[in-house]
Design a binder for these strands. Structure first.
Length: 312
RNA sequence: GCAAGGGUGGCGGAGUGGUCAAACGCACCUGACUGUAAAUCAGGCCUCGUGAGAGUACGGGGGUUCGAGUCCCUCCCCUUGCA
């Protein structure tokens, strides 16, 4: 049963028709493509990485230059991640007392400078605010699929707690700018709806955790919905041992999320997966996979049109 | 013409009497890659064989030696110095 949603996500930088896929641009660059090239692919919006920008350039610097859009010379919607997943991957590379997650935040050792650093829910949102992105994500604690129930429970609890702090920080930053916020604001509208003007504030999404455990996913979703966000995101690394996305979990989760909010599957980028999840009702996707694969010489072709002469 | 140094796999470049099918790069091939600290990682890369393994290689020819990419002679070619 397909529930493919063609809707419109409103952002400050313009509207996005769903379902949509956002490629990831580490420093605002998609694997060496110019924005002109990017546009020719039909891509209308991008994701960029908070932590890389913060560590390499500094959000203060980007802010001084007028924000990401001016800095990149890109006027379409830009989504920033919290930096949580990058810290997560760093921590899993090298576990130590310096690389750890506590209730305060995620501490890690900067692999370039070797200095200890701490990313908190508040600092992540402040950085994203300075960067001036259109869609933002709260800091969360991502997990894989095979953690113990205790670890999963802890991740969900912490993710909810961080989401609360993030929302508070978000509202504080909006207030400083004199931007109004209402729980009734809706950034997801029907196509053809009379009101297609651009949105008046950046969007904020929270990330549902719970690993491969349905009950925990449900709890996580409910707790986040209680706080209230513009988007609810499929978090963690929901890839099974066979290397495939857990489609059952994907479908279970999408049906727990409010239909009048954006449902965003983070890090899902296998073309077949994107199509499958879009039909489940997921609105938005981002992933490194297509661009990374392309950089590694991998070409996607429609089913049945592969050519042995081209390898993959 | 004289002098000196060289000619090794697709390329660069190790190797100076046995453990060399040839280090190490590059290129190439295959596999991996899922909120980008992955422009990475794993394997292959003379021929035949799934494999153990076998065969043929170090400019050409000849020689010394149990054994030569490595030593000697000769021929061909390249680079540099002197005329």
């Amino acid at each position: 049963m397909s529930v493919l949603r063609n809707k419109i996500i409103k952002t400050i930088a313009g509207n996005i028709i769903t379902p949509t896929f956002l490629p990831d641009a580490t420093y605002g660059s998609i694997g060496g493509l110019s924005f002109v090239d990017l546009e020719s692919t039909g891509i209308k919006e991008i994701v960029t990485t908070t932590l890389h920008l913060e560590k390499k350039l500094g959000s203060d610097y980007v802010q001084k230059l007028g924000g990401l859009h001016k800095f990149f010379s890109y006027d379409r919607p830009i989504l920033t991640d919290s930096g949580g997943f990058q810290v997560f991957s760093l921590i899993h590379r090298r576990k130590s007392k310096l690389n750890e997650i506590t209730d305060e935040g995620a501490s890690f050792v900067d692999p370039i400078t070797g200095q200890k650093d701490l990313l908190t829910p508040e600092s992540s949102l402040t950085i994203q605010h300075k960067l001036g992105s259109d869609i933002r994500v709260v800091l969360d604690e991502p997990l894989g699929m095979n953690d113990t129930p205790e670890v999963v429970e802890s991740s969900v609890r912490r993710t909810t707690a961080w989401a609360k702090r993030s929302k508070a920080q978000y509202l504080k930053l909006l207030e400083q700018e004199g931007i109004t916020y209402s729980n009734k604001d809706t950034a997801l509208i029907e196509i053809g709806s009379a009101d297609e003007s651009s949105f008046h504030r950046p969007l904020l999404g929270a990330v549902v955790q719970g690993g491969g455990n349905h009950e925990m996913r449900k709890r996580s979703a409910e707790e986040l919905i209680e706080i209230g966000f513009d988007s609810y995101n499929f978090g963690g690394f929901p890839i099974k041992e066979d290397g495939r996305l857990d489609l059952e979990l994907s479908e279970y989760l999408v049906n727990l999320l409010p239909t009048d909010k954006i449902r965003y599957a983070m890090g899902i980028g296998n073309p077949d997966d994107v199509i499958a999840l879009a039909h489940m009702g997921w609105d938005m996707f981002d992933c490194v996979l297509p661009t990374r694969n392309a950089r590694h010489g991998y070409l996607y072709v429609p089913k049945g049109e592969g050519d042995k002469d081209f390898g993959n």
